[in-house]
C-alpha cells in the first residue's frame, strides 16, 4: 500500500518533527490548549458540583447539562465561537472547555452526594460545622470520583482539540487538515495515527496518575461513575 509507505516516510522525515509547524511544536500547542481548557472547566465545574452535591440538590441540572452536551455537536460550537469574533486558540480553548464541564460537574456532584449519610451525621454529631464537614470529611471521600471526572474530561478534551484545526486552531490536527488540503493521504494517515497515539498515551498516563494518587482502600470506587 503506497499510502502506508507515504505515511511511514512522512513520519521518518526529521523536518516534519522540528520547526514551528513540526510534530513536536504542534504536540506542545495541543497539550497547552488542553490544559488551559481543562483548568478553565474545572474552575467553574468543580466548586459548583461540590456545592450542589453538598446541598443535595441540582441533580436535574447535571442531567440536563450532560444530555445537551451530548446532542450539541462539538463542531457546531467550534464554528460558532470561531466566527463569532474569537480567533484560533481562544475559540478552541473556550469551545472545548464547554464540553469538559459536564463530566467534571457530574462526577463532583455524584462524589459528594454519595458520601455515606452516616459519615456525614457522625461529622455533624462531633460538632463540625457544615463547611468543616464538607472540607474535612466529604471532600476527601469524594476525591476518587473528582479525579475520575477530571480524567474523563482531560481525555475528551485532548481528543476534541484536533477538530479545531478545521476552524483555525493549531494542534496535532493541523497535520491532518494540511494533508487533506494538499491531498497527501500519507500525511493524513500519519496525522491520524499521531492523534490516536496521543489520546491513548494520555489516557494511560492519567489512569496511572489517578491510581497512584488514590489511597489503596478507595481504588474500587474510582472507576464507578466515570461514564
Amino acid at each position: 500500500m503506497s499510502v502506508v509507505s507515504d505515511a511511514v516516510e512522512w513520519l521518518n522525515d526529521p523536518l516534519n518533527w522540528t520547526g514551528t509547524h513540526g510534530v513536536l511544536a504542534l504536540t506542545r500547542e495541543h497539550l497547552t490548549i488542553s490544559v488551559a481548557a481543562v483548568l478553565l472547566a474545572a474552575v467553574i465545574a468543580l466548586p459548583l458540583g461540590v456545592w450542589l452535591g453538598h446541598r443535595r440538590s441540582g441533580g436535574s441540572l447535571t442531567v440536563v447539562l450532560a444530555n445537551t452536551s451530548r446532542a450539541l455537536p462539538t463542531f457546531a460550537l467550534l464554528t460558532i465561537f470561531a466566527s463569532g469574533g474569537l480567533f484560533g486558540q481562544t475559540a478552541t480553548t473556550l469551545a472545548v472547555a464547554v464540553f469538559a464541564v459536564p463530566p467534571i460537574l457530574t462526577n463532583a456532584y455524584t462524589g459528594v452526594l454519595e458520601v455515606d449519610a452516616d459519615v456525614r451525621d457522625a461529622a455533624r454529631g462531633m460538632g463540625m460545622s457544615s463547611v468543616r464537614s464538607l472540607a474535612l470529611v466529604e471532600l476527601p471521600l469524594a476525591l476518587p470520583l473528582l479525579a475520575a471526572g477530571l480524567r474523563t474530561a482531560a481525555v475528551q478534551v485532548i481528543a476534541t482539540v484536533p477538530l479545531a484545526a478545521f476552524v483555525g486552531g493549531t494542534s496535532l490536527g493541523s497535520v491532518i487538515v494540511t494533508g487533506l488540503a494538499l491531498q497527501r493521504y500519507g500525511q493524513v494517515l500519519a496525522g491520524g495515527v499521531l492523534v490516536a497515539l496521543l489520546c491513548l498515551v494520555a489516557e494511560g498516563v492519567l489512569a496511572g496518575i489517578q491510581r497512584f494518587l488514590t489511597p489503596m482502600p478507595m481504588r474500587q470506587r474510582a472507576t464507578s461513575s466515570s461514564e
Binding site: 500500500m1 499510502v3 505515511a7 481525555v155 481528543a159 476534541t160 484536533p162 477538530l163 490536527g173 491532518i176 494533508g179 487533506l180 493521504y185 500519507g186 493524513v188 494517515l189 496525522g191 491520524g192 495515527v193 492523534v195 490516536a196 489520546c199 491513548l200 489516557e203
Partner: peptide, 18 residues
C-alpha cells in the same frame, strides 16, 4: 474502550486513505 479513546477525527483520517 481502547477504540473509543481514538478520536473520531483520527479515525476518519486513518480510514480516508483506504
Amino acid at each position: 474502550g481502547v477504540l473509543y479513546t481514538v478520536p473520531s477525527v483520527a479515525l476518519f483520517a486513518m480510514l480516508a486513505p483506504f
